[in-house]
Simulated scan of single mutants.
Amino acid sequence: FGGQNGSGKTTLFNAIQICLHGRSAFEETLSRREYEERMQALLHESGGQKAEEASIRLEFEYTDFG
Protein backbone atom coordinates (compact mmCIF):
# COMPACT_ATOMS: atom_id res chain seq x y z
CA PHE A 1 0.00 0.00 0.00
CA GLY A 2 1.20 3.46 -0.77
CA GLY A 3 -0.05 6.99 -0.35
CA GLN A 4 0.72 10.37 1.08
CA ASN A 5 1.00 10.96 4.80
CA GLY A 6 -2.43 11.30 6.34
CA SER A 7 -4.19 9.42 3.56
CA GLY A 8 -5.39 6.61 5.85
CA LYS A 9 -2.99 3.69 5.29
CA THR A 10 -2.42 3.02 9.00
CA THR A 11 -6.10 3.61 9.76
CA LEU A 12 -7.04 0.94 7.24
CA PHE A 13 -4.70 -1.63 8.77
CA ASN A 14 -5.81 -0.73 12.31
CA ALA A 15 -9.44 -1.19 11.25
CA ILE A 16 -8.68 -4.63 9.80
CA GLN A 17 -6.91 -5.62 13.01
CA ILE A 18 -9.85 -4.45 15.15
CA CYS A 19 -12.30 -6.21 12.86
CA LEU A 20 -10.43 -9.50 13.16
CA HIS A 21 -9.49 -9.33 16.85
CA GLY A 22 -11.96 -6.98 18.60
CA ARG A 23 -10.79 -6.05 22.09
CA SER A 24 -7.72 -8.24 21.67
CA ALA A 25 -6.43 -5.90 18.95
CA PHE A 26 -5.22 -3.49 21.62
CA GLU A 27 -1.95 -4.03 23.49
CA GLU A 28 -3.58 -4.19 26.92
CA THR A 29 -6.62 -6.11 28.13
CA LEU A 30 -9.68 -3.87 27.96
CA SER A 31 -13.05 -4.25 29.61
CA ARG A 32 -16.08 -3.84 27.37
CA ARG A 33 -16.54 -0.29 28.65
CA GLU A 34 -12.88 0.59 28.07
CA TYR A 35 -13.09 -0.91 24.57
CA GLU A 36 -16.17 1.17 23.74
CA GLU A 37 -14.47 4.30 25.07
CA ARG A 38 -11.34 3.55 23.03
CA MET A 39 -13.42 3.01 19.90
CA GLN A 40 -15.33 6.25 20.52
CA ALA A 41 -12.00 8.09 20.81
CA LEU A 42 -10.96 6.75 17.39
CA LEU A 43 -13.93 8.27 15.56
CA HIS A 44 -13.09 10.88 12.95
CA GLU A 45 -13.27 14.55 13.82
CA SER A 46 -13.64 17.20 11.15
CA GLY A 47 -14.25 20.90 11.58
CA GLY A 48 -14.80 20.51 15.32
CA GLN A 49 -17.56 17.95 14.75
CA LYS A 50 -16.94 14.37 15.90
CA ALA A 51 -18.65 11.48 14.13
CA GLU A 52 -21.33 9.87 16.30
CA GLU A 53 -20.96 6.38 14.85
CA ALA A 54 -18.81 4.26 12.61
CA SER A 55 -18.63 0.70 11.39
CA ILE A 56 -15.96 -1.74 10.36
CA ARG A 57 -16.77 -4.52 7.94
CA LEU A 58 -14.35 -6.98 6.51
CA GLU A 59 -15.55 -9.32 3.78
CA PHE A 60 -13.64 -12.10 2.09
CA GLU A 61 -14.69 -13.78 -1.11
CA TYR A 62 -13.22 -17.12 -2.05
CA THR A 63 -13.59 -18.55 -5.52
CA ASP A 64 -12.40 -22.01 -6.53
CA PHE A 65 -12.11 -22.55 -10.25
CA GLY A 66 -10.96 -26.10 -10.10
Rank of each mutant, 00 (worst) to 15 (best):
S55A: 10
Q49P: 00
E34P: 01
L12M: 14
R33A: 05
G8V: 10
E28Y: 08
F26W: 13
G2V: 10
G66P: 02
F65I: 03
R57T: 11
K9D: 12
R32E: 15
H21D: 11
L30N: 07
N14T: 06
S7A: 15
F60Q: 11
Q49H: 12
I16V: 15
E27Y: 10
F26T: 02
G47A: 02
E27F: 09
F1Y: 07
E61Y: 12
A54M: 11
M39N: 02
L42F: 07
R38M: 14
A54R: 06
D64V: 07
K50H: 02
R33D: 07
G66R: 11
E37K: 04
A41S: 05
Y62A: 14
F65A: 05
R23V: 07
Y62G: 08
S46M: 03
C19S: 08
H44P: 00
R57D: 11
A54C: 08
L43F: 03
R32Y: 07
Q49S: 09
A25H: 03
Y62Q: 12
T10P: 03
C19H: 00
L30W: 11
N5H: 05
G2C: 13
L58Q: 04
N14Y: 04
N14F: 04
G6Y: 12
T63A: 14
G48K: 01
Q4K: 14
Q4Y: 12
T29K: 14
A15D: 13
N14H: 08
E36P: 00
N14K: 12
S55D: 08
A51S: 06
Q4H: 11
Q4A: 14
F65E: 12
E53M: 09
T63K: 14
N5W: 04
H44L: 13
Q4T: 06
F1V: 03
N5Q: 14
E45L: 01
F26A: 04
E28F: 06
Q49D: 09
E61T: 11
A25Y: 05
D64C: 07
S31Q: 07
N14W: 04
S31M: 09
H21K: 15
G6C: 06
N14L: 09
N5R: 05
N14Q: 14
T29F: 09
L43G: 01
E53Q: 14
Q17D: 13
E28A: 11
G8Y: 13
E36C: 07
L12R: 06
A25K: 02
E45V: 04
E52W: 04
M39V: 04
L43W: 01
T10W: 12
Q40S: 06
Q40A: 12
G47D: 05
D64L: 13
Y62V: 15
S7I: 14
E53R: 15
